[in-house]
Design a protein around this nucleic acid. Structure first.
Length: 658
DNA sequence: GAGGAAAAGTTTTTT
DNA sequence: ACTTTTCCTC
């Protein structure tokens, strides 16, 4: 007699994948010792891949995943890395802490929210909200409405002075200054008022996520201690685009273990307008004398022709970190320069060429049109629409920044945190007859009444302007309902309730064509349905909830779409074919950045744009365009095209249109 | 103080 | 194209 015993198939012994298929430079980075490391990585050098392998290597060396902190530039990049990591190690669910400075900062601050008097699920103001609040502060401080202010330069000077005294407001607040249209020497008061109102409301802005994280490390010894012990290895991507606060956070987080690897490329620093400081990466070896510098110089992305063009262009910037980029990729077509008659012909060329590329077998999704400013895409949107070429826009307003979405969310935010003045203002002032003054009064009354839902169900207790009473009533009623256990547990039903109670009608009244917005709200409801309760729902949207297409109702994932993107948003991406449009004087480089350091940054931006392409690069400009102030004007070529056309041998060829 | 109409000003880039 | 400001009225 014999019996069959069935063996489970043995899992194949994993090859040490973390070293597989890497070149020598990449391998050195992956296996670098646990000490400060600076990695200078050129475009297309497999930087993300190398970083992922590094993490895999750490895990295989026995480091527990939750003791690794990986900071990336976007949450998307973090998601991409964890996907690759799962592939690499053959299983999922690695608890590597990874995300942006802002998202990680938010999580850490949440753990200690009480120290700052914040509610555990504090909201984070986006730029528009922050500017709105600041403007209200400005309005409250500058009494005489007739003081005319000096133009931007003086205003900036004043703000700089304010920032020198308020170090915690460095550095991003600077550009917000452009939002004030009415300030004189009260800028310091205004900022102070802004800060206090924000914290009274129990909300933060983007900057606070960094500033408070740093305060946790600087001022709370026990938290600093525990954070420094919580992670043993720190990796930071896109380090050239960090600002001084982020840099200090890195230093403090790494102070104990000093296993910190920062990766970046000084030639791709394009965020100084947001406070990024290139000296963070340039001075890294000084701050960490024992740091080892690694280079990733082989480009795996682009053809030699493209790389040659990019290198010629960036060589007009004074030397930065020395590196020698090379590629062994096969030769490709020489980049093309096209001068269109006007912006319409430019759009027509792009559309026509896109169709040809598609016929040649290039997928639409691997074609991108890049530009300096969002409005550069306008004619192209029309033209692509006319020709039924599907496209996706990655610049401009994002899904969650649209007015109707923010209107709806503001009610939920209030229900989650009644102190949130900013949210209250948003929906209260939707009502005819309620302006800023009435909204502030009502909000105060609500906060001091003690029983918010009860008071809302009986709005007669509030001093609503007579004219507004009728319109406010349904809102008050639905607000009271939002505090109920039932709606708290179902964000999607909560949104449906408030839409039915007043918002859909209101939208129809204020919008000529509400169909699209209604569809967006349907999308929002569908998204909310996957969320267990209102706080969790809001939390999931607090930061970088996707660039929009993820949420667009017509987003059919099956449809291949051409990407229209600002150069900034295209950072880190690659495409088979890239169209770079509006390479005209005053457009790219932008007229506002035509000199000095700004010009160098614009040139880096051009470099980033050009190095997104794997094979095809089309450099376009209109010969004339319509200017709002001057009518149709002649456009000279972009400085960057001029520079390229002077180089020998030529790096591009000109196409004549007929 | 609020709202509406008309005029004027404005366009970088964004976690 | 879009938002912000201004000025007027209730």
């Amino acid at each position: 007699m014999s019996k069959t015993y069935r063996m489970q198939p043995t899992a194949p012994v994993p090859v040490p994948a973390h070293l597989d298929g890497l070149n020598d430079q990449q391998r050195a980075v992956v296996t670098a010792p646990f000490q400060p490391a600076l990695v200078i990585a050129g475009p297309g050098s497999g930087k993300t891949r190398t970083l992922t392998h590094r993490i895999a290597h750490l895990i295989q060396a026995g480091v527990r995943p939750e003791r690794i902190l990986s900071l990336t530039f976007t949450n998307k990049a973090a998601a991409e890395m964890s996907r690759r990591l799962a592939d690499l190690l053959g299983r999922t669910g690695y608890a590597v802490a990874s995300g942006t400075f802002h998202s990680i900062g938010r999580r850490l601050i949440q753990e200690h929210a009480d120290r700052f008097g914040l509610p555990p699920n504090f909201a984070t103001l986006d730029r528009e909200d922050a500017e709105g609040l600041m403007k209200r502060c400005a309005a409250d401080i500058t009494k005489p409405p007739d003081t005319r202010f000096p133009k931007a330069s003086t205003l900036r000077d004043l703000l700089s002075a304010a920032i020198n005294t308020e170090r915690d407001l460095e550095p991003l607040i600077l550009e917000r200054a452009s939002a004030f249209s009415a300030l004189t020497s009260e800028i310091g008061d205004c900022i102070a008022l802004y800060q206090s109102r924000k914290f009274e409301a129990g909300v933060t802005d983007f900057d606070d996520l960094l500033v408070l994280w740093r305060r946790l490390l600087r001022e709370h010894d026990d938290v600093r201690e525990s954070l420094q012990r919580r992670f043993d290895h720190l990796l930071v991507d896109e380090f050239q685009d960090t600002n001084p606060i982020q840099c200090e956070i890195v230093d403090l987080m790494a102070a104990r273990h000093r296993s910190v690897m920062v990766v970046g490329d000084d030639c791709q620093a394009i965020y100084s307008f947001r406070g990024a400081d290139i000296s963070n990466i340039l001075n890294f070896p000084t701050r960490y004398p024992e740091a080892v510098t690694y280079n990733l110089e082989q480009n795996y992305r682009s053809s030699p022709e493209l790389l040659a063009l990019a290198n010629v262009s960036i060589s007009h910037n004074p030397a930065q970190f020395p590196k020698q980029l090379f590629t062994s990729n096969p030769s490709g077509p020489i980049p093309a320069n096209i001068i269109a008659r006007d912006e319409s012909e430019q759009a027509a060329f792009v559309a026509q060429r896109i169709l040809e590329l598609r016929d040649e077998g290039v997928e639409l999704a691997s074609i991108a049109v890049l530009y300096r400013a969002h409005w550069h895409s306008m004619e192209l949107q029309i033209e692509l629409g006319r020709r039924n070429i599907p496209f996706e826009i990655r610049s401009g307003l994002k899904f969650f920044e649209q007015r109707h979405i923010k209107d709806v969310l503001s009610l939920l935010k209030f229900a989650a945190n009644p102190r949130d003045t900013i949210a209250f203002f948003r929906f209260a002032t939707l009502v005819d007859g309620i302006g800023p003054a009435a909204a502030a009064r009502i909000h105060d009354q609500l906060l001091s009444c003690g029983a918010i839902p009860e008071t809302l169900s009986n709005p007669r207790l509030l001093s609503i302007p007579k004219r507004a009473a009728g319109a406010f009533e349904p809102i008050a009623k639905v607000l009271a309902e939002l505090f109920s256990e039932e709606l708290q547990q179902s964000p999607s039903r909560a949104i449906e309730r408030l839409r039915a109670a007043f918002y859909d009608d209101l939208l129809a009244r204020i919008d000529d064509n509400p169909a699209n917005r209604i569809r967006d709200l349907d999308t929002l409801v569908a998204y909310a349905a996957g969320q267990p309760n209102i706080p969790a729902f809001l939390d999931s949207l607090a930061l970088d909830p996707g660039t929009g297409s993820d949420f667009q109702a017509d987003a059919n994932p099956e449809t291949e779409r051409v990407i229209l993107s600002s150069v900034h948003q295209a950072k880190g991406l690659e495409f088979q074919s890239v169209f770079l449009i509006w390479l005209a004087e005053d457009q790219f480089p932008s007229a506002r950045s035509a000199t000095g350091d700004d010009l160098e940054e614009e040139r880096r931006l051009f470099y980033v744009a050009a190095t997104r392409a794997k094979r095809d690069l089309y450099l376009l400009r209109p010969a004339t365009y319509f200017s709002r102030t001057e009518g149709r004007v002649y456009a000279r070529a972009s400085l960057f095209l001029e520079e390229l056309s002077r180089s020998r041998p030529p790096t591009f060829e000109s196409w004549r249109l007929e």
